[in-house]
């Protein structure tokens, strides 16, 4: 039963990371899909970069950023008297950054699937940009957005490389399921390693099953053609 705090911390890290990537990812995806601006290409590359880098490198860059030498670390040191390096929040940062490209990619596809004319129509009816996004764009992109969130959540749960560098592997404080498995395998504790591996498997299967179900489910408003089963024709 000493697995429970590890699983709980892993879930906590993944939930908070997802909570961070959802709004930032939506804004980023919206910028990439609907706006034209200078440096859009660079933003696109920058967003996808963690996908192309070894997670260890991402972790190393993060460590440098949040450490006392990095500007993020200096700000947090000045504000709170400490850096976030080797805390559970560092694990959140690592998970967020690594899952971010996947989340943004799903969101971009989802938002691009919404007819821009509907947004123009909403604005013509008096809805501002934010309201249009919340009442028209988001509901129509809902499926892809939820799918992206789940994908990001799964990726955050399984994050190892960046996490172990920037958050460490401190039992009871920053040890997540993947880093705990690593420790147990290293120390030859195969039975308990397998146990945690099974937990990972179950969580992953559940999230992916929901993800796939969401993407394949027909939407009520997709029913095609003139289905005039109720009400008289006019």
């Amino acid at each position: 039963m000493y697995d429970i705090p590890i699983v709980a911390l892993s879930l906590q890290v993944a939930f908070v990371a997802t909570g961070l990537t959802l709004p930032i990812g939506l804004i980023t995806a919206w910028l990439l899909v609907r706006k034209n601006f200078r440096g859009k290409f660079l933003l696109d590359v920058f967003v996808s970069l963690p996908l192309a880098l070894p997670p260890v490198v991402v972790g190393y860059v993060l460590l440098w950023l949040v450490g006392t030498q990095g500007w993020v670390g200096q700000i947090s040191h000045g504000l709170f008297g400490s850096t976030v390096a080797f805390t559970w929040f560092a694990a959140v940062l690592a998970s967020s950054v690594v899952s971010f490209p996947l989340v943004v990619r799903s969101f971009t596809v989802a938002l691009a699937g919404v007819d821009p004319k509907l947004e123009v129509a909403a604005k013509g009816l008096g809805a501002g940009s934010l309201r249009t996004f919340l009442t028209v764009t988001l509901p129509l992109a809902q499926r892809g957005v939820i799918a992206g969130v789940l994908l990001g959540f799964v990726r955050a749960l399984s994050e190892f490389g960046a996490t172990i560098i920037v958050a460490g592997n401190i039992p009871g404080r920053t040890q997540t399921v993947p880093t705990a498995i690593f420790t147990r395998i290293s120390s030859g504790d195969t039975n308990s390693a397998w146990r945690l591996a099974l937990v990972s498997l179950v969580l992953g299967v559940i999230a992916l099953a929901v993800h796939n179900w969401l993407l394949n489910r027909p939407r009520s408003f997709d029913s095609s053609g003139l289905d005039r089963s109720d009400g008289p024709p006019s």
């Binding site: 408003f221 003139l226 289905d227 005039r228 089963s229 109720d230 009400g231 006019s234």
Partner: peptide
């Protein structure tokens, strides 16, 4: 037609 969805309309 008030409770109908747009995809079911002519």
């Amino acid at each position: 037609l008030m409770s109908r969805g747009p995809s079911t309309l002519s």
